[in-house]
Nucleic acid binder design. Structure first.
Lengths: 248, 248
DNA sequence: TTCGCATTTGCGGTTTTTTGCATAATTTGT
DNA sequence: ACAAATTATGCAAAAAACCGCAAATGCGAA
């Protein structure tokens, strides 16, 4: 077994189990403990994993959080305020989940009277804190990573709604591929939401722009409005403007 | 189990329960008391927790000290553990919301494989933190005070379920009036849940016993099991036992 | 292919870390 | 104050990591 091969295998196992044991690896790969140790040491130096006595732990599980998180909250706040301005009394609004949406929920005018539909547990809670708006949770099996209700029943429920606005946090957007996601179930939900709304608003920090993921949610022509933290005239947004999307 | 893994597990448990017992940890993780003690000592030196006799306390919790709170949380923990013991692999379980249910969710065995249905946003989130159980959120209009989905659609959804167990936090219970609540919408949900389950388990601190509220949820004969923080032989529970309810 | 060179790998011996146990000391609750 | 439970301490065995070296392997060039 080649060195590269081994190291890829180690990282693969680490993604699967979040932990690997030196002894396991050496017997599985048919090499000596020392070799495994050296592999782990290298990978650790490359910052790919965390080496511990007896094996290694996945890095993603341990850290991975709250570095740029803090930085982005400011931007998300700018976005949230712009989005909140679009909401008017009496509207029926579908929303996805995600941190941008949570900020949006916090930014809503306290006098606002509107009805929000969402599949996201966290978003539902945030909306429910608001004094006057109505919140409808769309239920189904919960996808744990995203805390989103997904499945046929949720899609059906969404299909039975005629909303004025769909406010959607974006993961990836691109002039070629449009709006895309990595999770098939979530994609089904988002597609249904867009279909069920008169207008679709995408919100997200500009980092998410010009990137794509595996599964397409919608073409750009299905998107009506795009909100980022940038100035509407920022050149980064020009290509989207050319596709007929209104930028705020 | 690796050392770092153990320590992360300890901190995780501490976030969940605000308190851990040496003995609990050693049996859960399959290591000796001494090892756990040494782990706690290290974590304590790193300022990650506060070590006390018999276990450790969460740092954040210790600062905000509230006698009443602590007292009730301890009781709710006792209740939660008893309730968790009733759940077996493969079961379909309906649950209501409330703090007792949240504690119950935290106390579930990490290896458990079961499916939980709930109308409570908070409960759904808590269940979804569990590594292996399935969570189904039953959606509808959110009642803000209780963060519960209520309404005809939710009731219908519940009616289409055949659950093994219904675990219900109680607000008021009484030998005369049975189980009662103040919110009409919530009552509809709870009634539907009891009807949809083979067995109904009521959980709640003993304070809630021998009190009644405006609207009846169920007669005592519809309740199979009652769990409080008290010893099953406590005289306070005797009248309920006489009504054929099993006490844990 | 074959040769030479750099890298990689395995092994023996040593050091360090970790863990569990026994016993003594301490704390807790009654 | 006493009995039970919890903790500290010292110690020994096992596991893992480290070190240096020689053999093996991979790789590029002749």
């Amino acid at each position: 077994m080649l060195k590269q091969e081994r190291q890829e295998y180690i990282l693969h196992q680490l993604n699967l189990h979040n932990k690997v044991l030196c002894a396991d690896l050496s017997s599985k790969m048919g090499v000596s403990d020392d070799t495994v140790r050296r592999d782990l040491q290298e990978l650790s130096q490359e910052d790919k994993l965390i080496k511990v006595h007896g094996g290694a732990l996945s890095k993603s599980f341990h850290t991975a959080f709250d570095r740029e998180m803090v930085y982005n909250i400011e931007n998300k706040n700018i976005i949230a305020k712009k989005a909140a301005a679009l909401v008017q009394n009496g509207m029926y609004i579908l929303t996805s989940g995600g941190t941008s949406i949570l900020e949006f929920a916090k930014s809503l005018d306290q006098q606002l009277n509107a009805t929000f539909f969402t599949c996201s547990l966290n978003a539902a809670i945030e909306f429910a804190h608001h004094p006057s708006i109505e919140v409808v949770m769309i239920g189904d099996k919960i996808a744990k990573e995203s805390m989103l209700a997904t499945g046929a029943s949720a899609v059906q429920a969404i299909e039975s709604i005629q909303a004025d606005l769909c406010i959607m946090g974006i993961n990836s957007m691109d002039t070629q591929f449009g709006l895309s996601e990595n999770d098939w179930e979530v994609v089904q939900i988002k597609k249904a939401m867009i279909k069920a709304s008169k207008k679709t608003v995408c919100i997200g920090i500009s980092e998410k722009l010009n990137s794509q993921q595996k599964i397409k949610v919608a073409n750009l022509d299905e998107i009506d409005i795009l909100i980022t933290e940038l100035d509407p005239n920022d050149p980064l947004l020009a290509p989207y403007k050319q596709h007929g999307i209104i930028i705020y």
